[in-house]
């Protein structure tokens, strides 16, 4: 059985020292081993940005796509081979700005993949511009007088879009993050995991200390029930979205694959492509 070391390769990430993404990478590797995956049964699909490089840093099948499109690529991979475990990942700009259309639709489509967002509230690779997760007043190169646009409450949005698994975590909490990713992989449907992963170079507001001070663990809320969507929404709103843990999970709703009419139980990539002549003639006759 594979251990987390089997999911490592020798490539040195080009992330800045202290970047939160290192821990996210480690958590994915540990979670993959903990749920019993082998590297060749995992596909990590990523977008563009600092965090998008992650597909090259994990030893598994990896697909580094184009900006904002990790989700449609990942959904295509899963539809082609339902035997694979598919993780999509990228940053908050990738997923919630250029790729937001796909994020909302992936949520409501509910294909069984896990989406891990490394959320640092800023654009790092382009050297510090505002992101849709930046708070009002946040000063960046592109908002020198402070951002005037509202930040997206992504967890709340996911709930209203029909999400079946919504979780949030913090990159320093390696143990909790690992277990949330495991739960996401095991969830039968689309799982969204937003991870606060501080940018030590460009974001001087939302720092490690800032998150430690502001994040409320759901485990500290008495009688919190992650199967209660209303409670999930209320808790998020009361805490301005700054909670961590599994916020909501619907364990009943079947995944897209289980609902799609006629969709093969056997991985499509392993099915026979050939048609019998008899079947072909039948199809032709329908046009006669």
């Amino acid at each position: 059985m594979a251990t987390f070391k089997d999911f490592r390769n020798s490539i040195k990430p080009n992330w800045c020292p202290g970047c939160g993404d290192f821990s996210v990478q480690a958590a994915i590797q540990r979670a993959a081993a903990n749920v019993g995956l082998e590297p060749d049964n995992l596909a990590v699909v990523s977008g563009i940005g600092c965090s998008g490089r992650i597909s090259g840093y994990i030893k598994s099948y990896g697909f580094h796509g184009i900006h904002g499109r990790s989700l449609p690529i990942a959904q295509g991979v899963k539809m082609a081979n339902r035997d694979l475990t598919v993780i999509a990942s990228g940053g908050d700009g990738d997923g919630f700005a250029i790729g937001m259309g796909h994020t909302v639709h992936a949520i409501r489509r509910n294909i069984d993949i896990t989406y891990i967002v490394m959320d640092n509230q800023i654009y790092g690779l382009t050297k510090g511009q505002t992101s849709p997760r930046s708070e009002v007043g946040f000063k960046t190169k592109s908002t020198p007088e402070g951002s005037v646009e509202s930040a997206i409450g992504i967890m709340e949005l996911a709930l209203t879009a029909g999400a079946t698994f919504v979780a949030q975590s913090f990159s320093t909490d390696l143990k909790e993050l690992t277990s949330i990713i495991e739960a996401g992989i095991n969830h039968k449907g689309f799982s969204l995991i937003n991870v606060f992963s501080p940018c030590v170079t460009y974001n001087k507001v939302n720092t490690y200390d800032w998150f430690k001070e502001h994040l409320v663990p759901l485990s500290s809320i008495e009688n919190y029930d992650s199967s209660n969507r209303m409670m999930a929404m209320q808790t998020l709103m009361e805490n301005k979205g700054l909670v961590k843990g599994i916020i909501y999970q619907d364990k009943v709703k079947p995944s897209y694959q289980d609902l799609a009419h006629g969709y093969s139980k056997k991985a499509l990539a392993k099915t026979d492509l050939n048609l019998s002549e008899e079947k072909f003639n039948e199809l032709m006759t329908e046009f006669m």
Partner: peptide
């Protein structure tokens, strides 16, 4: 955009 990239993902995975 989703249509084309999803098709790319599925072709990559062998279908």
């Amino acid at each position: 955009i989703a249509a084309c990239t999803m098709a790319i993902g599925a072709n990559y995975a062998g279908v």
